[in-house]
């Protein structure tokens, strides 16, 4: 992990909104998310279950199941083009080739009915038409060796069920990177694996992204993973990014009460005394159906103020690209203004 401040931006997400229409109402799974990824950079997206991490990244691939889901607003700029405006055919040439994805559960993410060789070769041949089957097979074997599959020449002819979970995730990574993807989206890649394997897989992702210059978007709920791997972190809550900063900065100065709580709730070997209970954030994540205009975290926040109940906080830059959306950092005048507007609105209703 190394910051590359001069590297060019490969992917830029601007004000992305992905909504799901359900019988109960509209679920704003992702509501105004913006971030950007530079070449070779690793960016972490953290948050609780249901905070919109996975939906954000499925939106990047335009793989939101539709209906009920729909990307209703925003832009996703990849190599200067807005992905959301591409045709389905153009989009297919980006998926798996320019932007690849690996998933949470390696046990079910590979097709159990097809040999590893078939699945890997088809990926390469799909995107590089002039590559012969033999060449694609050779490259696949190379990739398997690269991710540390022993006797890859033989193992490539096996079926997924003949591999362990960790090995399957290695195969997934090999497949995802076999076309030299520029961005790798890793959706909780280690959640379903044994703890001993988790570190190996993360190390592998870090090593390969470094070697191949692939930018990585790492989705996780494990702050320990983020600390070890990411250059930048976005903290998501109820479909919005509440805090965004470089990793070291975020750990040194967690500013949003939610981030603070998350960091405090990671068990630590050095400071936690025996008998002390581990910190946890009280309450449940909010129901994102028809969320009123307010800070969605206020019911669980120990620093909540009157204004938090009435308006969503503006995003403030604390310097060095450290952004936070919390009323604690807003000016007094802004708070007064927001309260006044909220009052007017409530009276009108």
């Amino acid at each position: 992990m190394s910051m590359k401040p001069n590297a060019k931006t490969v992917l830029e997400v601007k004000d992305l909104q992905t909504y799901f229409k359900t019988d109960a109402g509209i679920v704003k799974a992702v509501d105004g998310v913006s971030f950007s990824v530079r070449e070779g950079e690793t960016i972490g997206i953290v948050g609780e279950s249901g905070s919109g991490k996975s939906v954000t990244n499925l939106s990047l691939m335009r793989l939101i199941p539709s209906p009920p889901g729909r990307i209703v607003g925003g832009e996703i700029l990849f190599e200067g083009r807005d992905i959301l405006k591409l045709t389905e055919k153009q989009m297919r040439s980006i998926r798996g080739k320019k932007i690849s994805m690996i998933f949470q559960d390696p046990m079910t993410s590979l097709n159990p009915f097809l040999k590893i060789s078939t699945q890997m070769v088809e990926t390469i041949r799909l995107h590089e038409k002039d590559v012969s089957t033999q060449e694609a097979l050779e490259r696949s074997i190379e990739m398997l060796k690269l991710v540390g599959i022993p006797s890859a020449e033989k193992r490539i002819q096996s079926y997924p069920h003949q591999f362990s979970g960790g090995m399957r995730q290695r195969v997934m990574i090999a497949q995802a990177l076999s076309c030299n993807a520029e961005v790798l989206i890793a959706d909780e890649p280690t959640t379903a694996l044994d703890v001993t394997i988790q570190a190996q897989i993360l190390e592998l992702i870090a090593k390969l992204s470094d070697k191949m210059g692939t930018a990585v978007i790492l989705i996780t709920h494990d702050l320990g993973v983020v600390a070890g791997m990411c250059d930048q972190v976005c903290v998501m809550y109820a479909g919005k990014i509440v805090e965004k900063a470089e990793t070291d900065e975020l750990y040194a100065r967690p500013s949003h009460p939610y981030t603070e709580g998350l960091i405090k709730s990671v068990p630590r070997m050095d400071t936690t005394k025996k008998g002390n209970r581990l910190f946890s954030i009280e309450g449940q994540p909010p129901n994102v159906i028809d969320l009123p205009p307010c800070c969605p975290f206020h019911p669980r926040c120990h620093k909540a103020m009157e204004v938090c109940r009435h308006a969503y906080p503006p995003v403030k830059d604390l310097g060095k690209g450290h952004e936070v959306a919390c009323w604690l950092f807003a000016d007094e005048s802004e708070k007064q203004q927001a309260l006044k507007e909220a009052n007017v609105k409530e009276k009108a209703e």
């Binding site: 793989l63 798996g96 994805m101 990926t123």
Partner: peptide
């Protein structure tokens, strides 16, 4: 199923 999602993510 998950493996169909994988196939879609491969651009098929």
């Amino acid at each position: 199923s998950d493996y169909i999602r994988t196939a879609k993510a491969k651009g098929m």
